[in-house]
Simulated scan of single mutants.
Amino acid sequence: MRPYSLDLRQKIIDVYIEGNTSQRQIAQQFRVAYSFVRKLIKQYRETGEIAPKRRTEQTPTKLSNEQLEILKTIAESNHDATLAELCDLLEQRVGVRIG
């Protein structure tokens, strides 16, 4: 899911700063989740920023480079296998279960 635009974020903050509207009403007015409005306002108060947060860490892969090569070989030799079958074959070969 893509982050909401800066334009929308700024409009939400502008309505919030006016002070006449609750966070729930703002969420309804802009048709966004209340939790988004709450988090955006919290971020604005703490940092003064409204831009979407950047992901700083990539989730590490469960497989080593060697295991990835084995998976590639399995996939090439079983080109008509389903994803579940490939997962089973990899688990049998290297002992790691992926989904």
Rank of each mutant, 00 (worst) to 15 (best):
A33L: 08
A33F: 01
A33K: 13
Y34M: 01
Y34E: 13
S35M: 07
S35L: 05
F36H: 05
F36R: 09
F36K: 08
V37N: 06
V37Y: 06
V37M: 08
V37C: 11
R38C: 07
K39D: 14
L40Y: 07
L40D: 04
L40R: 10
L40C: 09
K42E: 12
K42V: 03
K42W: 02
Q43T: 11
Q43Y: 08
Q43D: 06
Y44T: 03
Y44I: 03
R45S: 08
R45H: 13
E46S: 10
T47Q: 06
T47W: 04
T47D: 04
T47P: 02
G48D: 05
E49S: 13
E49G: 00
E49H: 11
I50K: 03
I50A: 03
A51T: 11
A51P: 00
A51D: 09
P52C: 07
P52Q: 08
P52N: 05
P52E: 06
P52H: 05
K53Q: 14
K53E: 12
R54G: 02
R54W: 01
R55G: 11
R55A: 11
R55C: 06
T56Q: 09
T56S: 10
E57Q: 13
E57S: 10
E57V: 07
Q58W: 02
T59N: 06
T59H: 10
T59R: 15
T59K: 15
P60V: 08
P60F: 00
T61L: 10
K62W: 01
K62Q: 12
K62V: 14
K62Y: 01
L63E: 03
L63A: 03
L63F: 05
S64N: 02
S64I: 01
S64E: 01
S64T: 15
N65M: 03
E66K: 13
E66F: 07
E66D: 12
Q67V: 01
L68D: 09
L68E: 14
E69Q: 12
E69A: 12
L71V: 00
L71Q: 09
K72V: 00
K72E: 11
T73Q: 14
I74W: 08
I74K: 07
I74R: 08
I74A: 09
A75D: 02
A75C: 04
A75G: 00
E76G: 00
S77F: 06
S77C: 09
S77A: 09
H79S: 15
D80T: 15
A81H: 12
A81D: 12
T82F: 10
T82M: 08
T82E: 12
T82R: 14
T82G: 14
L83E: 13
L83I: 12
L83N: 11
A84E: 15
A84W: 02
A84V: 12
E85R: 15
L86T: 06
C87K: 02
C87Y: 08
C87I: 01
C87E: 15
D88W: 01
D88I: 05
D88P: 00
D88C: 04
L89C: 03
L89T: 02
L89K: 15
L89W: 01
L89S: 04
L90H: 04
L90R: 05
E91R: 09
E91H: 13
